[in-house]
């Protein structure tokens, strides 16, 4: 019991630190692609401390505060459902379907928070964020279904054990792996699919009225989202990890691929995003599903 409590505290804490490192990696990749030096090593930490250390915090009401807590809390709960080397948390008691539900909570929390700000840009941003969720969730659910069918279980711990015995999911279902990577690009909200942040167009969308600790929480949330996406893909396709080193190398590599693609692209419009996400990854996913179910 005590060990479980320690794991439940430790897993989000590790996620936070690794997520900040991923945030740094994202900015470093952007800098290298644009031939710049990029931020110093502790930059994400400086940003978070600065935002929480603001001396006047502007709240727009109770739901504004609660929504942010829901957004960060959704990810904190999601971290305990994904097994990492040495720690399973409650992953062996639940399954990947619960995780899908938890991964939708942050978007809804942000929608609540942005809704109370009563800023038109925030409303446009939220409507776009929920549209984006609709776009990437369909290939994502197909991928989850296909992989669960292939492994014969929805339990993430058993999936990792299966892969470590029979080889990585990436080689057994490459089409599903491609669809998953495509959906990941939308899930992280990176460049071709960056419709809801759109700094030049709707002035950072849902975050328009967020300052101080609210924006600090959203940076924490972003670092959680990078970490979750990285380790979920690693768990589904790359055989999880035996030690922390190979696990983290895989997770960082997975996150680096969408980042590298992102900074070469401009932004799609909302209907272009829906079109491309409902076409290519869904087609590849359905094909991969057919292959998995046939064999």
């Amino acid at each position: 019991m005590m060990a479980l409590i320690v794991e439940l505290v430790l897993m989000p804490a590790v996620a936070f630190v690794v997520g900040l490192a991923m945030l740094l990696m994202m900015r470093k990749i952007a800098a290298k692609i644009q031939r710049r030096v990029g931020p110093p090593f502790f930059q994400p930490l400086y940003d978070v401390v600065k935002f929480f250390g603001k001396q006047t915090q502007i709240s727009h009401g109770l739901i504004h505060d609660v929504g942010i807590i829901v957004a960060v809390g959704g990810y904190i709960a999601a971290e305990t459902l994904i097994p990492v080397p040495g720690m399973t948390g409650i992953a062996d008691r639940t399954d990947v379907i619960t995780l899908i539900y938890f991964l939708m909570v942050p978007s809804l929390g942000m929608a609540l928070a942005a809704g109370q700000c009563a800023n038109p840009n925030a409303s446009i941003g939220i409507s776009r964020a929920l549209t984006a969720m609709l776009a990437y969730d369909i290939p994502f659910v197909i991928v989850i279904f296909g992989m669960s069918w292939m492994y014969g279980t929805t339990n993430l711990v058993q999936m990792v054990e299966y892969q470590q015995a029979h080889g990585w999911g990436l080689f057994q279902a490459p089409l599903l792996a491609f669809a998953g990577l495509f959906a990941l690009q939308g899930m992280l909200g990176k460049q071709p699919f960056e419709i809801y942040v759109a700094p030049a167009e709707i002035a950072t969308g849902p975050m328009v009225e967020m300052g101080g600790k609210y924006l600090g929480s959203l940076i924490v949330m972003q670092s959680f989202s990078l970490y979750t996406a990285g380790i979920l893909y690693t768990t589904l396709f790359l055989g999880g990890g035996v030690t922390w080193i190979d696990f983290l190398v895989k997770a960082f590599l997975v996150v680096a691929i969408p980042m590298t693609i992102a900074f070469q692209f401009p932004r799609y419009r909302a209907e272009q995003m829906l079109g491309s996400l409902w076409k290519w990854p869904v087609l590849a996913g359905l094909l991969g599903l057919a292959v998995v179910m046939w064999s």
């Binding site: 110093p40 002035a203 950072t204 975050m207 328009v208 009225e209 300052g211």
Partner: peptide, 13 residues
């Protein structure tokens, strides 16, 4: 950005 300075688009941030 190597000094930690970034452009932002809204006054709240």
């Amino acid at each position: 950005e190597r000094l930690g300075i970034q452009p932002m688009v809204t006054p709240r941030q």
